[in-house]
């Protein structure tokens, strides 16, 4: 049993195949984070400044993405795409669903960052003669960024890990590529350990960075 850990038929090409999968994981993450952040910032600011009759419905719609398993969202989106006859690759579907999924979480982060700026600070800015736009870019944005960035980093890592589910609709990313190798050489523990290591190496340094930022900014408060 244990001998299989040491005498392996795992080859260099297999490792390259997995690294290619890791590349797909990173690409998925990149597009999802880009789209999710842009949407999240827009929705977050809208939610923070709009009256309740805009805020409540928008919040309810975004809440749907957080209350349904990502796997189900992917399957539903993938079959819906076929129904209405758009020809997207599974990769594109994965990016779009992940971006929407991320935007739902990002909206809350941006909104709470926005609302964390005290009204008095903003009034002070305005009474010093700053315009509404200046108030947003010079006062609200820097303060909100400090509040939101650690959570945003956490969310990005979360999305990176959630890309693992995309293989269900047919994208060969890191976990799927390791699965392909497992079915060939039948050494699940060894191959999965490597996959886990790659995930860990992609996630851990950024997680640490986020924790450090959070700590440093809290100390300077």
């Amino acid at each position: 049993m244990f001998s299989s850990l040491f005498e392996t038929t795992f080859s260099f090409n297999d490792l390259m195949f997995m690294l290619k999968g890791a590349g797909v994981t990173l690409m998925l993450t990149f597009w999802a984070v880009l789209g999710g952040t842009l949407l999240g910032v827009v929705f977050g600011v809208v939610r923070a400044v709009s009256p309740w009759w805009v805020n409540a419905p928008l919040g309810a719609v975004l809440d749907v993405f957080r209350s349904i398993p990502l796997l189900i969202q992917l399957v539903v989106a993938n079959s819906f795409k076929t129904i209405i006859g758009i020809h997207w690759s599974p990769f594109t579907v994965g990016c779009v669903v992940l971006a929407l999924y991320m935007s739902a979480y990002c909206t809350e982060i941006v909104r709470s960052g926005f609302l964390a700026v005290p009204t008095t600070t903003r009034r002070a800015a305005r009474s010093l003669g700053l315009t509404w736009r200046q108030d947003l870019t010079e006062i609200v944005f820097p303060i909100a960024l400090r509040v939101a960035l650690p959570s945003w980093i956490g969310l990005t890592l979360g999305v990176m890990k959630d890309t693992a589910m995309v293989w269900w609709i047919g994208v060969v990313e890191l976990l799927r590529s390791s699965q392909v190798i497992v079915t060939r050489i039948h050494e699940p523990l060894f191959v999965l350990t490597i996959a886990g290591l790659i995930y860990f190496l992609m996630s851990f340094p950024i997680a640490r960075l986020g924790a450090r930022l959070e700590k440093r900014w809290r100390e300077n408060d």
Partner: peptide, 24 residues
């Protein structure tokens, strides 16, 4: 804690199902 937080949940379930399987 670090392993649980830095790898996908799906990976962890895979490990429990396939990984432990190869340990018998």
């Amino acid at each position: 804690v670090e392993l649980a937080r830095n790898t996908p949940a799906l990976f962890q379930i895979y490990m429990a199902y396939f990984g432990l399987g190869s340990l018998g």
